[in-house]
Lab assay of single mutants.
Amino acid sequence: GSLMYASIFGNVSAIIQRLYSGTARYHTQMLRVREFIRFHQIPNPLRQRLEEYFQHAWSYTNGIDMNAVLKGFPECLQADICLHLNRSLLQHCKPFRGATKGCLRALAMKFKTTHAPPGDTLVHAGDLLTALYFISRGSIEILRGDVVVAILGKNDIFGEPLNLYARPGKSNGDVRALTYCDLHKIHRDDLLEVLDMYPEFSDHFWSSLEITFNLRDTNMIPGSPGSTELEGGFSRQRKRKLSFRRRTDKDTEQPGEVSALGPGRAGAGPSSRGRPGGPWGESPSSGPSSPESSEDEGPGRSSSPLRLVPFSSPRPPGEPPGGEPLMEDCEKSSDTCNPLSGAFSGVSNIFSFWGDSRGRQYQELPRCPAPTPSLLNIPLSSPGRRPRGDVESRLDALQRQLNRLETRLSADMATVLQLLQRQMTLVPPAYSAVTTPGPGPTSTSPLLPVSPLPTLTLDSLSQVSQFMACEELPPGAPELPQEGPTRRLSLPGQLGALTSQPLHRHGSDPGS
């Protein structure tokens, strides 16, 4: 009898404990919600809404976190579960008819179910419309201010047509639940991603989709105040780019002037030289400038040598048109050559190039014969006009050509200096018209024969001689050997007369 009593008592207590286990969990969670309300000092109306929603959600799901349970299964099984949970929507909604099984599984994985109690606001006026909503159960109302403009029910759709707008718009009203509602919502990016994977279904979906109420604000059109608020930074940046392009296009129409201050000032006329910023005076940081632009901040801005204009002085008759350009485009679109090309026009420029290279940067340069637009006047290309890779490749080509020119210049200078040193070592320090008596009659020769300089066969020296023939050397430049009979510069000019005159010897006659 005691054994029977113990078994009955144990079973009854276990049954009672299981009955009250759900209630215990409910009270535990309710205590957490109330502690949250007390800690954050939530006001009474919002506090009442929180408690009511918790009670309804507990009775609806029995305190089970559906998302946590669903995430515990593998992905393939999750797709089947989501397809079952959203079967009513996918079967009865017209846009989803005719979709393949794979497309429906992908869509079912992207849908999220939302449960809303009465009085809950789903979308506020001015919120971004980031999702498309399908009503599965219940009814909602749409308000503009305090005026109800629409009441939607089961199988209705609200949001915005995503295929017509590249960016999400703003809501033009509040969406509030009238009863307990079940909503299926899919985010904008998720829907577009699935439709991109199934393009054959995309056309059918957009053609058959009928949005019951379009929440997009109709005033959000390009150029409206609301649109400016939504895309303020983007609009200002776009206007700045367009104004920069218009100014650079105007600059290219004036090829007669070359400016070292950047493309923003290349198009300024002579009357605007004294102004601080020219056409860019209202925004000094709008356009890029070269490193020399920092010198323009000092006094005497109108007389600054940074602004270059072609000189009108005539060229000498024998002067060549100019050196070879550094870039391939210089032959086609440049009416002034790079300062480095002028360094190779003569030997005198070679000796004085490194010492006063900055001073020569603004000297007169030889002109190319074609009066085409200036290379320095070409505006900086924006990322939309020329690819970045093209600019980098041009810079690399320019750097390689500069290296080759520097190597060639160093070799030419070394060769010229070597020839000058050899000339100085071969010439005796001094010569006299009267020579010392020699031991015999073989001493009648006034000077030792001097062998002429070897013929220069280097390509670089031939180019130097060509430049010497075309360029007029300055007075202080050293002379180079030329073709024809060679003669030492330090010898007297009348050596031929010395050989014809008898030598005057000093000596005593033994017979006297």
Rank of each mutant, 00 (worst) to 15 (best):
G493T: 09
L461E: 15
S272A: 10
I221G: 12
P383R: 10
P316T: 13
T372F: 06
Q399A: 14
M327E: 09
L503A: 10
I151F: 03
R265H: 10
P316Q: 09
P316S: 09
T499H: 10
P449F: 04
A266R: 08
L132K: 01
R247M: 13
S136G: 10
L498K: 09
G153C: 09
A131P: 02
P371Q: 13
S374I: 04
P369G: 06
I135W: 01
V147L: 10
T444H: 14
A430V: 12
P284I: 15
V416M: 15
D146C: 03
D459S: 05
R505M: 15
T212F: 01
E331G: 09
F201G: 03
D196S: 10
S243T: 10
S443T: 12
P317V: 12
E472K: 05
S508R: 08
T336N: 04
E295D: 05
R246L: 09
T218I: 13
T252C: 15
E253D: 11
S202Y: 09
R188H: 08
L426Y: 12
K154W: 01
Y165I: 04
S432K: 04
G267A: 10
L242G: 11
V391G: 11
Q399E: 04
S259R: 10
S136C: 04
F353P: 08
P383S: 11
V416C: 15
L426E: 08
L398G: 03
L376A: 03
L461K: 13
L395P: 05
P270M: 12
M197S: 09
E319Y: 12
T442P: 15
D249T: 12
S508K: 10
L402V: 07
Q399Y: 01
D356Y: 05
P316K: 11
P478N: 10
T336S: 10
G438K: 11
C181P: 02
F344M: 12
S312W: 03
S333G: 12
L376G: 11
L191K: 01
R307T: 12
P428N: 09
R176V: 11
F134L: 02
G138D: 01
Q494I: 11
G256W: 04
S285T: 06
L128W: 06
D396L: 07
L178P: 01
G322E: 03
P478E: 10
L405S: 04
D127H: 01
F351M: 07
L209S: 03
G226T: 11
A268R: 09
E406H: 04
L426G: 11
D127N: 03
S136H: 06
S462M: 11
R315A: 15
L456M: 07
R388Y: 12
L242D: 09
P441C: 08
G159K: 01
F134Y: 07
D146N: 12
E160F: 02
D156A: 08
L192C: 06
L195V: 04
S285C: 07
R144N: 15
A469F: 04
V450G: 07
R273Q: 10
D396E: 10
S393K: 01
S289I: 15
D251E: 08
T179M: 03
D203F: 07
L215R: 02
N155W: 07
L152C: 03
P255T: 10
H506T: 12
T415H: 06
R236M: 11
E392N: 15
T455S: 12
R315Y: 12
S451N: 13
A131G: 12
L209M: 11
H187A: 11
A370M: 06
I142E: 01
V416R: 03
S286C: 13
L308G: 12
G232D: 10
F467I: 14
G169V: 02
L458Q: 11
A497K: 13
P168D: 01
A150Q: 03
L230R: 11
S352A: 08
M197N: 06
G496K: 13
L215C: 01
E331A: 12
E479A: 08
A260N: 11
T435L: 09
S410C: 15
P199N: 04
P452D: 12
E295A: 11
